[in-house]
Every structure is written in structure tokens, then in C-alpha cells.
């Protein structure tokens, strides 16, 4: 879908319950360079609010949130 982003790392977090999706992304985002983009697919609806709250406190940027059936896809840019 969203071809507008060059994704550096893709994480499949489907089936994981909160807070694990946030924890995994928080850990893995360090594997991409600053400015790099992580794509994360979660199924837990809790992620909808948890990711933005997490991004706000850690300073990373959620570029886009897409929904496709049960899948919720986040594009997150590593800011620092």
C-alpha cells in the first residue's frame, strides 16, 4: 500500500497483546538509523491509542496509521 515511505524495518506484531507491540517497536527502532522508518503491523486494538502516546513521550513520529480489517499498520520515523 503506502509506497510513499521507504521502510527500513518491518515488524509483524500481529497477535501480540499490549504492551508487547510497543515494547518491540521501542526496542527495534534503535536498529534503524535516525530518520529511518519502521513499519509495524499490530492487531491489538489497544495499539491505536498506545502507539501515539508512546511516540509522544519518546519523541518519535508516527507518520501514518492505516487500517485494513483487523490489521493496524503504523509508519514510525526514528527522530533521535
Amino acid at each position: 500500500m503506502a509506497d510513499e515511505f521507504k521502510v527500513d524495518l518491518s515488524l509483524d506484531l500481529r497477535g501480540l497483546a499490549c504492551p508487547l507491540p510497543v515494547v518491540r517497536v521501542g526496542k527495534s527502532i534503535k536498529d534503524v538509523p535516525v530518520g529511518g522508518i519502521v513499519e509495524a503491523i499490530a492487531t491489538d486494538p489497544g495499539a491505536l491509542a498506545d502507539f501515539p502516546a508512546w511516540a509522544k513521550t519518546t519523541g518519535h513520529e508516527i507518520l501514518k496509521t492505516e487500517r485494513n480489517g483487523a490489521d493496524i499498520k503504523f509508519y514510525i520515523r526514528r527522530v533521535k
Partner: peptide, 28 residues
């Protein structure tokens, strides 16, 4: 790190609940 991160995110959610209310409603 993870525990600190999750704690801060939870506090942020509480501080700015108005920002997240619609997302939560949508989820529910």
C-alpha cells in the same frame, strides 16, 4: 528502559486523553 517507556506513555495517555478519546471509541 521498557518499563520507563511504558510508564511515561501511560502518563501521557492520561494527560492528553482528549487526543486519544476518539481512537479509543473507535477501537471499542
Amino acid at each position: 528502559e521498557e518499563l520507563a517507556m511504558l510508564t511515561d506513555a501511560a502518563i501521557e495517555k492520561g494527560n492528553s486523553i482528549d487526543l486519544y478519546r476518539d481512537l479509543l471509541q473507535e477501537q471499542i
